[in-house]
Amino acid sequence: MGAYVKDEIRQRGILLDELRDQLTAGTISIGGAVKRLRTDVTGLRQEQFAAMCKISLRTLRQIEQDDGNPTFQTLNAVFRPFGMQVGIVPLRRG
């Protein structure tokens, strides 16, 4: 594996870790995270990404705009390609 490919994989891993931390901390919305994953990790257009996740383009647009009311199944379909799923996490007290 070339140095460029290894660097790309490392950069994507860093981005995934950052987004997971931001989601957990509540500093990024689900829609914002999905859009960053789609654009920064996959580089796909909305149409391509929706087809890959087997959801409608309208649903993806609503998710990215933090609109609508997606099911856990739909959100999991969007996050699954990145090794993530929707879950319950404890509230941070502070």
Rank of each mutant, 00 (worst) to 15 (best):
G2P: 12
A3L: 14
A3E: 14
E8P: 00
E8H: 12
I9Y: 13
R10N: 13
Q11I: 07
R12N: 15
R12V: 11
R12I: 13
L15M: 15
L16E: 12
D17I: 08
E18C: 07
L19C: 09
L19E: 03
R20D: 00
R20E: 08
T27M: 05
S29Y: 09
S29P: 01
I30N: 01
I30D: 01
G31H: 07
G32D: 07
G32L: 10
G32R: 00
K35I: 08
R36L: 13
R36K: 15
T39N: 12
T39K: 15
D40M: 13
D40I: 09
T42C: 00
T42A: 05
F49Q: 05
F49K: 06
M52P: 01
M52H: 12
M52Y: 12
C53R: 02
C53I: 00
K54R: 10
K54G: 01
K54W: 01
I55T: 04
I55P: 06
S56W: 01
L57Q: 13
L57C: 04
T59P: 00
T59E: 02
T59K: 06
L60D: 00
L60I: 04
R61K: 15
Q62I: 06
I63N: 02
Q65P: 05
Q65K: 15
D67T: 13
T71M: 04
F72L: 11
L75K: 08
L75P: 03
A77S: 12
F79W: 07
R80E: 14
P81Q: 08
F82D: 04
G83I: 09
M84G: 01
M84T: 09
M84L: 13
Q85N: 11
Q85D: 04
Q85T: 10
Q85M: 08
I88N: 11
P90T: 10
P90L: 10
R92C: 09
R93G: 15
